[in-house]
């Protein structure tokens, strides 16, 4: 009955092209300063694409004084913005910068994993946009892959929150740099 949809991120495939980030805006029409998904370069070798991770233990949940957050049976964490009083406590509490304060409305919004799309059988916009398949969607209740790891270097501390995201780490590669 309940499951947990989650992201799967292949650090070896991501090229940092930001299509996911902009596809999210294209789909959700978020205000300019509000980024539900962000691509960052964490080293010369590695990019990271992070949105709300729809945690197993969402801290936003625990700290919200208005009880504005809910978790769907598929694990998607939503905020009911009509209940939000703009206190930003959740913004501070989340290690992934998922809750985003929208200065236009004075409320917090966040990634909703495109649940209206998912309810129609479509992938979230970010996943659909990923041309290299670095970003995927899995059901973590049943997902099994011995090559997957719970975090990679550069990803925030997953303890406490238990984010619904798994990773494939980078493989070893051969490099030649000029002597400089």
């Amino acid at each position: 009955m309940t499951n947990q949809v989650g992201f799967i991120f292949d650090a070896d495939s991501c090229i940092g092209c930001k299509a996911c980030e902009v596809a999210c805006r294209n789909e959700n029409k978020t205000f300019d300063g509000v980024k539900w998904r962000r691509v960052t370069k964490i080293s010369e070798d590695t990019f990271l694409s992070v949105s709300c991770n729809h945690c197993n233990n969402p801290e936003c949940f625990r700290v919200c004084p208005e009880n504005a957050f809910t978790k769907r049976y598929d694990g998607i964490v939503l905020i009911d913005s009509s209940l939000c009083n703009g206190c930003k406590i959740c913004v501070e509490a989340c290690p992934y910068n998922a809750p985003q304060f929208d200065p236009e409305t004075n409320k917090v919004t966040k990634c909703q994993m495109c649940y209206p799309r998912q309810d129609q059988g479509l992938l979230p916009a970010c996943v659909e946009a990923c041309t290299t398949s670095a970003l995927g969607l899995v059901d973590l209740e049943t997902f099994v892959d011995p090559n997957a790891v719970p975090a990679i270097e550069g990803f925030p501390d997953i303890r406490i929150t238990q984010p619904s995201i798994v990773f494939y780490p980078q493989r070893k590669k051969d490099r030649y740099f000029l002597n400089h």
């Binding site: 092209c17 299509a19 946009a129």
Partner: peptide
């Protein structure tokens, strides 16, 4: 209101780049 890739295009296969998704 929105632009997406065209799945019938065998090269981009329904994906766009970041610039493409920003066309609106």
């Amino acid at each position: 209101t929105k632009v997406t890739g065209d799945p019938k295009h065998g090269y981009s296969k329904g994906h766009l780049c970041a610039k493409g998704y920003a066309y609106t």
